[in-house]
Design a protein around this nucleic acid. Structure first.
Lengths: 208, 208
DNA sequence: TAGATTGTTAATCGATTAACAATC
DNA sequence: TAGATTGTTAATCGATTAACAATC
């Protein structure tokens, strides 16, 4: 394994490889070449090999990659062999969709705690989880060693929720609020701004 | 205006500028410098200027950018001065969240038609919209000149829905199904794979 | 051995950033 | 004029891709 910095673009492709391999594994495909794998996800074979090379040598020359072996390596690399406690703040439509999202379960990820500020929601069930009072957020995060927070609250509350989560020990944030959050450098922040996708389609259509 | 190709990264930042300027405009901020704008969204001033320069000269040297003027230009550039008919296929949780998503309304975008295959859902109301039978998809798309399709169906159905939409005249697809869609080159495709965000957080946490 | 495919180096391509002349 | 900030060029940085030796 080399001590080079892995490009962020490579990291973003790892989950895509992982899911594709999961499907192949379920179909009892045993060996796959970088060419075939690349074709399935729409990237060149050379990029597949380069990406994997940042983490080790997982294939056999002249043969290809053993699906179960590569899968196991990727699971480890992605941290999916560990259990991450995840808290979601904001029991709205989008929060509901996320808690129920089938994609997570398949990956061994799940959301464990849901919080909201609305007294009418607190205590109610939400996709099988009890909605906690957001005033208890820090307490619950600390007690349960929650490391990942998902922010699905209105933009104007996002920063203060982020501050609270970080204060209580969360190390990674997934932010759906359409606003720029200020967080310390050591906190992992992933912005997921849903309106950008639709706007960029409108942009491309209006260019023609 | 130069005849250079605009980087895709620039295009993805345009909606962020737009939303930030909308907020500034509402706060009656009249003039903003590239430095201030960049600070607000977490990018260097030089990138703001460079990005905007692909489309024209919107600022005044020594002064900055007039918020309403820049906003107007961006609205035009992003195609938000036009009305786009949008159809969503898949009346599940995530579809519901998208139809209700406040971020779109603020931008003058909205979802107009919802489709599903479930007989129990067809005809029912869904966030204020009637759920149409997916078997009528092509018909409705053609009749109403729908140009944008949002795919929120299970992965195994995504490709055939995409084919149907394209066949009926849709030119841009926003795909939430965790699968690689094959579409003709002239079709604008934006993938929005929600599990990637969460996995990449797990990855970063497990690196430490 | 002959054919196939990996892992890696080097070349290319594209995006960001520093620097500064233009100009308000 | 002096101070500020744009628009743009050129330098830098980072990611992709082509090419090929290594090797199964």
């Amino acid at each position: 394994m080399k001590k080079t910095i892995t490009p962020t673009t490579t990291i973003e492709r790892l989950p895509i490889y992982y899911r594709c391999l999961q499907r192949l594994n379920k179909m009892n495909v045993d060996i796959i070449s970088s060419q075939e794998l690349g074709d399935k996800i729409g990237i060149p074979s050379t990029q597949v090999r380069k990406d994997l090379s940042y983490y080790g040598e997982f294939g056999r020359r002249g043969v290809g990659y053993e699906v179960p072996v590569l899968l196991k390596h990727l699971r480890k690399i992605l941290g999916l062999d560990q259990v991450w406690e995840v808290a979601l703040v904001g029991a709205g439509n989008l929060g509901h969709a996320l808690v129920n999202y089938g994609g997570f379960r398949k990956l061994g990820l799940k959301i464990d705690y849901v919080f909201d500020a609305d007294p009418n929601k607190i205590g109610k069930k939400f996709a099988g989880l009890k909605i906690h009072d957001v005033s208890k957020l820090q307490e619950v995060v600390k007690e349960n060693g929650i490391k990942v927070g998902i922010i699905v609250v209105p933009a104007e509350h996002a920063q203060s929720i982020a501050d609270d989560l970080i204060d209580a020990g969360v190390e990674a944030l997934w932010n759906f609020a359409p606003t720029h959050l200020k967080v310390p450098q050591e906190i992992e922040l992933k912005d997921e701004d849903l309106s950008i996708g639709l706007i960029s389609l409108a942009y491309h259509l209006s260019q023609d």
